[in-house]
Structures are given as C-alpha cells and as structure tokens.
C-alpha cells in the first residue's frame, strides 16, 4: 500500500470582521473595522493509504469541511503542509484535479434545466475523456446506481435522492483516485442513504479509490469507515478504528434485562434508562460491569441479559460535550 494523503500540522485560520448588534455598531464598523481570527483547523496531522475509507466526525463548525476543502485544493492553508497524490492541492495542478473529485451534499453541479445526460457530457469534455472511456464508465455507473430512466430527465424534475445519485455519478465519470465526500447523504431518506452508502462501498472495492467522507449520520460512518478521524474545535481528537473510539470514550456499558416478573426499583444496580414491565435498560460504569452483572443474576430472576456499548451517537455526543477526554 502506498500513502496517497500526507498532512503535516495543517492549519487554517480566517480573519472575520467583528461587529456589535444594532445600527450604531454597523455604522462604526464601516469606518473602523474590528477583526478577530478564527482558527478553523489547528495543526492536524495524518496520513491516508491508498484504498482506505476514512470518516471525518465532528459537530458543525468543527473544521471537517475546511479540511476537505484544503485537501481538494479549494482553500489555501495558513500553516503546515499537505501532499495529495504527490501534489500540493492548492496549486490546483490539472493533473491533480483530474484524479480527485469533490461531492458536497448541499450543493449541485448539474445544470438545472437540461437533462442529466447533457451535464454528464459537459464533464466528459472538461475531463477530456474519449468517447469510449466515457461510454464505458457511464454504463458502469448507470448500472451501479440504477440511473436508467433518470438520464433523460431535466435535473429540476428529479427528487433530492435521484438528484444526489446523479451528482455522484457526474463526479465519478473521470474515475478519480480520491473521493472527497462532504455530507453526501444530507437530507436523504433512510433507504436512499443506505443505497448511496452501499454504492460508495462497492465503488471503493471495485476501483480501489481512496474515500474521505464527512457525515452527520453515524450510520454512514459505521457502515463505511473502518477508520474514523474525530475533529472538534479544529483539533484532531482521535484517529483510529471505530471500535477503539468506542472503547476509548465510552465510560459506560448498557445492560438490557428481561426479567421473569416486573420489578420494583432497580436503581440500586445503576442508572435506569428505561423500565417497561419486565423489560429494563440500565447504564453502569464500565469497570463495574462484571460486578453489577453478577449481583443482578444473584438477586433477580433473569430471563435474558445483554451487555452492550451505548449507541455510537451517544458516545460521540459525550466526546463533544466533554471536549477532550
């Protein structure tokens, strides 16, 4: 395996105008502009091997998108270095741009009023594909994404999900080696999210392309990304396997009990999350799990008992609300 992305202490800070509320403040700011520096990304270092699928996690404004924008050449960093496929991204060398693609969930590159296929044709010319290459890749994508009858429809007549499938296809016609996907499933319904997810997985397996993905939906990251990078306030909090993230940050375990008869108060065993009839869910500190489980089995008539990690969403939420662990 070879390293395709190498980032070293990459930073980006913006200078933004500061202005108080009200008319007076806005008039003052016309003359005397106060500014403040916002550090969107602070000295992030990581490297990505060819063929990896890496998920970027973080709340809004954490710096995920800024990082992707720097790696795809849209933004110039204020510090540090990055090398993507051996290129400095922000030089926007054409040979570099031909090998990457960027998909942004909330934006569109297809032309609104004309059939999808004509927007594809534009990309064929921009990426200088031969007719045969284009035909071949188009057929492949049409099959994988089930685009069939969508191609001849004007983009404005497509549903959000259909449009997103077409956006993704348009972004992949040139067979990029690196995919930057920024919230690709934003606003899609669950089944369409799953569809797109499966596609990215297939595409990665088939072509060996490297995928960097940001998403709000944990399900995306869980399903797709063996490796996750957690960014918070522009800093890298965690870089590793998803399972390790859970192990590292989850201080508690969840116990799901099925009892023979409905029980009185269970709070002596741990924090009761829910209790309905004979079924109860408890939360206990990780280090006490064995001891609490033993006690429950001893003191109660248990039909079934299940120990699990809390949902990843919750863990992530804890990580972010605590800042650093």
């Amino acid at each position: 395996m070879s390293t395709v992305i190498e980032i070293d202490r990459l930073s980006k800070s913006y200078v933004v105008p500061v202005r108080g509320a009200g008319v007076r403040a806005s008039i003052v700011s016309l003359v005397k502009r106060k500014t403040r520096t916002v550090e969107a990304v602070k000295e992030i270092s990581l490297s990505v091997e060819a063929g990896e699928v890496v998920g970027f996690l973080g709340p809004n404004g954490a710096g995920k998108t800024t990082t992707l924008k720097m790696l795809s050449g849209l933004l110039h960093p204020t510090g540090g270095t990055a090398s993507v496929l051996g290129f400095e991204p922000w030089k926007r060398n054409n040979d570099f741009l031909r090998q990457i693609t960027l998909v942004m969930g909330q934006r569109n590159q297809l032309i609104w009023d004309i059939p999808v296929i004509d927007s594809f044709d534009r990309n064929r010319v921009i990426y200088r594909l031969t007719r045969e290459e284009y035909r071949e890749r188009l057929d492949e994508l049409v099959e994988l994404l089930e685009l069939g009858e969508l191609l001849s429809k004007p983009v404005r007549n497509l549903s959000l999900g259909e449009r997103m499938k077409c956006e993704v296809a348009a972004a992949l016609l040139h067979h990029p080696r690196i995919l930057f996907l920024d919230e690709p499933t934003l606003g899609l319904d669950v089944s369409m999210q799953r569809r797109l997810r499966t596609f990215v997985e297939q595409y990665n397996k088939r072509t060996g392309a490297t995928v960097l993905l940001t998403s709000h939906y944990m399900a995306d990251v869980e399903a797709l990304c063996p490796r996750v990078v957690v960014i918070h306030h522009g800093e890298l909090l965690f870089d590793g396997k998803l399972a390790d993230l859970v192990r590292k940050f989850s201080a508690q375990k969840t116990l799901v009990l099925e009892l023979e008869e409905s029980q009185e108060d269970l709070s002596r065993f741990g924090q009761v999350v829910s209790q309905e009839g004979s079924r109860a869910t408890l939360r206990v500190p990780k280090q006490d799990t064995a001891e609490v489980t033993a006690r429950i089995l001893r003191e109660l008539k248990v039909q079934d008992l299940n120990v699990a990690d809390p949902p990843i969403d919750e863990i992530i939420d804890q990580v972010f609300s605590r800042g650093m662990a």
């Binding site: 849209l74 054409n94 990457i100 693609t101 942004m104 934006r107 590159q109 921009i126």
Partner: peptide, 18 residues
Amino acid sequence: VTGNFDYTLTKPADAQVL
C-alpha cells in the same frame, strides 16, 4: 454566493474559461 463556484475550481480546466 451559493458556494457552487467551488465545483468550478475542482475542475481540471481554466476557471476563467469555465
């Protein structure tokens, strides 16, 4: 304004021409 210009910049062609 909408940010769609980002797509133009990721294309391997002269942005002014596009």
